[in-house]
Design a protein around this nucleic acid. Structure first.
Lengths: 358, 358
DNA sequence: CTGAAAGCGCTTACAG
DNA sequence: CTGAAAGCGCTTACAG
């Protein structure tokens, strides 16, 4: 539409009395142009109301500035924080993100990936939709690099950036063990996703190391939502295993669990110890504030962008890079440590506590 | 980079033994091509591993499929829900969103808008950064349509899509009046933003209609965050005005307020009545579940996309469209209505309640 | 330091 | 129904 009405380099060239090539050099800030000429050109640009046509430039130079950002579920605050981290980093690198939210829909993921290839993206940062397998990610040989964010795919050797899930969950469970708990549940997510597998493995390692039995009825799988967390807590309270603490797959589940306690007039950190995973910005604002593993989500987004740049500029398509981070324990109130001190067990209804911290 | 290695329409044409024009027609699904020829071309596309080059097509046809999505704060769940709504709608329309998160930074907003013009976006959906004025949105005459989402700008006649803020806040306050409250606070946001002004106005209208005095010390401005809500509640509890209820600028503030109550061993809906605004997906998962105004955020995103399409395809750049919606009261537990019935006042420490609802 | 020519990969009239 | 030619708005060698 309005594209056609726009002034072109030729209009600038005529206005300034120079050639198109000269204008092009000025546009890209070349130092091969005499300052006066450059000024004359810039003046002409203003006069004709020039707007750079990046599509044309990209076509000629066979290079775009696009990077695909494919998120599996942007409504989940974890992924929106990740997206913000990626967007911010790409922006600083002078790259332009094309966004797609697949909603964990495989067909949509396939379509948006195809579309991004057609746009000539320099690369893609992809948090794969649930049920993605290696076959879905088999791309044409000319395809740009793709980085998996947060979820690995079996049999797929694409570079991966994510938290150190096993280590984080292990620290969470160790913390609860140190507080004296012996019946520690795992409120988990989708067993088909590597993130769940790794976090559950970390939890198991901690229990094993502590000499605690790994009871299958301490695992409560549930939806990865606040509702799911509440539901897991209800089941846990009604179960024969009678856990006194839980490592949660993520903060959403942990928040739902604290809420289910509150519904019963109970309180996380007093009547039941809870540790989450992710350190969402709402974790510190929960009541009680959530003890959790800091996934450094924004920083992970930044890492993903940095890795991608490396692959784009780098010599060959490198194989199997795995960058992990984010497994620091952040102690707040939902685990009870602040009530009892590091080593004591959580007792019921300790006297009221005071300050919260971010 | 890899762009150059890709097969082109000419490669397909040679492979299929037809001309480039024929290939182009097949690519766009024209019915002017004999079925056998089309099949032959499609076969050739596969053989040469063709990937459509959308940038080239756009250049020639002087039309892109890009739409700019400029969000002021994607970390705020309200805006991420809005973004999901917009993205989903654009996707269905065959359009490709270019994302930018300005973080309420004016300089960044200016840059991304410029960049989007250079990419030839068909239009932009913009939730303006704080402190944006009409001058910041003065675009070149050839610029595509821009729609303001959620925030109006004084002196700027761009089309606007947003909630009916005054009406929603009025309903919220009327609800609290009907429950018997006479000292109703407003926990508000940034007074420079029209959304705040409109919501505060709606609140004032309800109080005036009920014959209640509009006390300036019932207005507690605060950060539009969970922390801000907690802080407003602390100030309200310590104030001479001693409110018994609050209309909150949004759910984040309302959630923070319920949490501040919980920190004191008090409970929203029993000791203090709270109504939020937005109906974030976490509103129903709050403890207690939040009474709020449903902003129909996803639907608003869809509306914004629809309006934009109308302007793109429409005859002339239409002026000043204002589409509003989203002001339905959703009664849950934080207001106390379920405890006392619609007409009674909230008393202290009513007997324990039961079920929650989404 | 600047200019004239060619071409990126498509689509668009225009023929036939 | 299909082909040969021109051109979208840039950048890229290549001259000078």
């Amino acid at each position: 539409m309005s594209l056609r009405a726009r002034a072109t380099v030729l209009d600038i060239a005529r206005q300034a009395g120079v050639s198109r090539a000269t204008v092009s050099l000025v546009l890209r800030g070349s130092d091969r142009i005499k300052p006066e000429t450059a000024d004359k050109v810039r003046q002409a640009m203003k006069e004709v109301g020039y707007v750079y046509n990046r599509a044309a430039a990209n076509l000629r130079s066979a290079r775009t500035n696009f990077v695909g950002m494919v998120m599996s579920d942007l409504k989940n605050p974890f992924f929106s924080e990740l997206a913000v981290g990626i967007e911010d980093s790409l922006y600083r690198l002078g790259l332009t993100p094309i966004l797609a939210n697949t909603n964990d829909d495989l067909a949509r993921q396939r379509q948006v990936l195809q579309s991004m290839l057609e746009y000539g993206v320099l690369g893609v940062i992809l948090s794969p939709a649930r049920a993605t397998d290696a076959g879905h990610l088999a791309l044409p040989p000319t395809a740009p690099p793709v980085i998996l964010a947060m979820r690995k795919i079996d049999g797929c050797d694409l570079p991966y950036v994510g938290q150190d899930n096993a280590s984080g969950a292990r620290k969470a469970a160790e913390h609860l063990v140190a507080l004296g708990h012996t019946r520690i549940a795992f409120f988990g997510g989708d067993p088909a996703i590597t993130t769940q597998q790794e976090r559950y493995r970390g939890y198991c390692e901690a229990l094993r190391a502590a000499g605690l039995p790994l009871l299958p009825d301490l695992l409560f799988e549930t939806d990865v939502t606040r509702d799911g967390g509440g539901e897991a807590m209800e089941r846990a309270m009604a179960s024969a295993a009678k856990p006194t603490a839980a490592v949660c797959y993520n903060d959403l589940i942990a928040i739902g669990a604290t809420r289910a306690l509150a519904m019963r007039g109970l309180k996380a950190g007093e009547d039941f110890a809870i540790v989450g995973f992710d350190n969402l910005s709402e974790a510190k604002d929960n009541f009680p504030p959530l003890t959790t593993i800091d996934a450094e989500t924004m920083a992970m987004g930044d890492r993903a962008a940095q890795i991608l740049i490396g692959l784009i500029d780098g010599p060959a398509r490198s194989t199997a890079t795995a960058v992990t981070g984010g497994s620091r324990l952040v102690v707040r109130d939902s685990c009870g440590a602040r009530l009892t001190g590091r080593s004591g067990a959580v007792s019921n209804r300790v006297s009221s506590r005071a300050s919260l911290t971010g």
